[in-house]
Design a protein around this nucleic acid. Structure first.
Lengths: 217, 217
DNA sequence: TAGATTGTTAATCGATTAACAATC
DNA sequence: TAGATTGTTAATCGATTAACAATC
């Protein structure tokens, strides 16, 4: 409600809290103190309390936090329950994998449709999700509220499809291409999943354990 | 060479530098100043110079940086060129998508094999990569040096397969399951790609633009 | 050489941790 | 009530930015 700016670091931690609270709930745990949660999550209890108090006092002194209601609170902060919708652009291997496997509903999203240009898939369904031709993107948007576009198109098409998504009125783009989409006006939020950045970070860390690089003889 | 501890924040930025330098090189750009790079990457020139000087003085005063050699330097730091290897555990939609699409070689990795338990895929090849039965994991490791295991198994199998990878001697695990793998001894580096954390962060950010949540009437 | 830009030190800013009074 | 644990302020730590002398 109050628009105090929340730091990116805090935002990045919220989904992790949400995930752990979900697991605790599944395990039948009803209450937890910041200290107990800190042991499980390997962060400081202080940080947990600071993070949560950016949004409100969700705990009770002398008692701790109710797992279920804290999970609901964080879910609400994250926007679960707002009925967010998305469409997938590109039904290659990765797009298909995400459509089939990802639990959109558990994250408060409804997947409305997928778009592609390949005649072999246009008109079919993937896991119950209809695949339309990319030409019909704008028409689809005029008929449905779409909050997010998921980009899994080939890198060469990334910027163009991103532009079209923005012009069609998405609020956010979930970018799985290795292309860094940009716009002059930063009206749209872009969240990127760069597989190769992730692997290279891992590569760096294991290289540290390997010691100095041997000369290739 | 010198083992001064590099902060996670810096490590996380290195692959991004590497990516941009690759694009600049492809565009035929031969030199760049920290100021020019800062304009492109939307970070401060100061940060770029600080980051790079954690590892060495790669630039020349009055001139800037040579794109190609800086790219090579950063690649070296990230461990490209060390001949890292990996195997994929789980050939469901996501595993298959990554095997088919991801440019492992561009990140200095060689994908040696995939493992699964499904009789329908064991014995086949995916994009030239042989798929073995998971029972043969340990035997494979005794015959090959494997640095990283990529986990795309069902969440129920994640911890067990992670344990087996560690016992078999991997240095790192690239975890695509939504399960947070842990070990008593932290000898192994885990890099996780949590799709749902990413989507929820995006969800939070677009929710901010939407204003206070309306009551569902 | 003069100009440009790095490498690096110093200053600032923000995030994390510690501490403790408030309170359930 | 006494004990426990939060919410919150204060202290610390680390990361980012600014500034400038070194130098190509």
């Amino acid at each position: 409600m109050d628009n105090k700016e929340i730091s990116q670091a805090v935002i990045a931690r919220l989904p992790r809290y949400f995930r752990y609270l979900g697991e605790l709930k599944n395990d039948g745990i009803e209450r937890i103190s910041s200290q107990e949660l800190s042991d499980i999550m390997k962060v400081t209890a202080s940080q947990i309390r600071q993070d949560l108090n950016n949004f409100g006092g969700f705990g009770q002194q002398g008692y701790g936090y109710k797992v279920d209601s804290l999970k609901e609170e964080i879910g609400g902060i994250l926007g679960i329950g707002r009925g967010h919708t998305l469409v997938v652009l590109g039904t290659g291997n990765l797009g298909r994998a995400i459509i089939k496997n990802f639990r959109f509903s558990g994250n408060g999203f409804r997947l409305l449709a997928a778009f592609d240009v390949n005649p072999a898939v246009v008109g079919t369904e993937i896991a119950g999700v209809p695949v339309y031709h990319a030409d019909g993107l704008e028409e689809f948007f005029s008929a449905h509220r779409v909050d997010v576009g998921l980009l899994t198109v080939p890198i060469a098409a990334a910027q163009e499809m991103g532009d079209r998504l923005v012009n069609a009125g998405v609020k956010g783009i979930w970018n799985f291409t290795n292309y860094e989409i940009t716009w002059a006006s930063r009206e749209v939020v872009v969240e990127a999943v760069h597989f190769s950045d992730s692997l290279l970070a891992l590569s760096y860390m294991i290289s540290q354990r390997e010691g100095p690089e041997e000369e290739l003889t």
